[in-house]
């Protein structure tokens, strides 16, 4: 069903979208390599001299503690994907579910509640909320994820709600209702698959947002607790750059930039192919 709908819309991926896809796949393979234990395993050993220059032993040099920056940067790909996948999947699923219910029962109490909750969460300053959740769930390594999921779903829910309200009045749904199919079945079979393109785009947007947020949170000391991430590397580098050591900063920021760029290009291309705007002056 899903693939059928994707195919029905004319998929024309632009060259930049393809570039994005290649970048994302490359990083994903890197993450798989780390998961499988083929790369990045030596990220925590402090066995080099401090601030060694890049060379054949230390490809990207070493940091303040003599840790291998290359190993750390590579291991961080895995961290990034873990955060990105968990947050984007769960927040999109939550947003889709709540948005679908709100849209299906629009202008009822359920709808009002979902909108109210989304409005409330959107009115709390984001980093304040995350900081508070991180604190409330102190010690839990998932605090950051929970906070992001709890706030990222609202945008998806609003979009899904609007789309479901549109689809609800189409013939195929009306006829499905007329022959007495239960609501949940209609929602699952006919409505949600038609919002799939929105969900796909939202998932890729949340992926980017999650990774970017992780960086800020790790800098603030609320992010990744054990392990290493680009955010932690950047946080370390804030001291190093003032002393003129840029390797940590460059490695983390360039890899971070490439992955984010890949996802942004991809989600732009997805948006364009689903919603080509024709106008031109």
């Amino acid at each position: 069903m899903a693939t059928e709908i994707l195919a029905r819309r004319k998929m024309r991926i632009s060259r930049s979208g393809l570039t994005g896809l290649v970048i994302v796949i490359f990083f994903f393979l890197l993450a798989v390599a780390v998961w499988a234990g083929w790369a990045g395993q030596n990220w925590s050993a402090a066995d080099g001299e401090r601030w060694a220059s890049p060379g054949s032993t230390w490809w990207f040099g070493t940091n303040q503690l003599g840790q291998d920056i290359f190993e750390r940067a590579v291991y961080s790909v895995r961290t990034a994907f873990e955060i990105g996948i968990v947050v984007s999947l769960l927040s999109t699923a939550l947003g889709a579910a709540l948005g679908a219910v709100a849209g299906w029962r629009s202008n009822t109490l359920a709808d009002g509640t979902v909108l109210w909750l989304a409005g409330v969460l959107d009115s709390i300053p984001f980093y304040l909320f995350v900081a508070a959740v991180a604190f409330a769930l102190q010690g839990l390594p998932w605090a950051m994820h929970v906070a992001m999921i709890a706030t990222f779903w609202t945008a998806t829910a609003r979009l899904a709600r609007a789309e479901v309200m549109k689809i609800k009045s189409r013939e195929f749904v009306l006829s499905a209702r007329a022959i007495g199919l239960p609501s949940w079945l209609i929602l699952m079979r006919h409505v949600l698959p038609n919002t799939l393109h929105i969900l796909l785009i939202q998932a890729s947007i949340s992926f980017v947002a999650a990774i970017k947020t992780e960086v800020i949170l790790s800098f603030l000391g609320l992010g990744v607790q054990d392990g290493v991430s680009w955010g932690l590397m950047l946080a370390e580098s804030t001291q190093e750059v003032l002393a003129g050591h840029f390797n940590n900063f460059l490695a983390a920021s360039i890899m971070l930039f490439l992955l984010l760029l890949g996802f942004n290009l991809l989600s732009d291309a997805l948006q364009d192919s689903f919603d080509p705007k024709q106008a031109a002056l």
Partner: peptide
């Protein structure tokens, strides 16, 4: 798109 792909922290540093 490039601007959107750069982290706030990276910009500041």
């Amino acid at each position: 798109v490039t601007g959107m792909s750069i982290s706030f922290l990276v910009v500041i540093i």
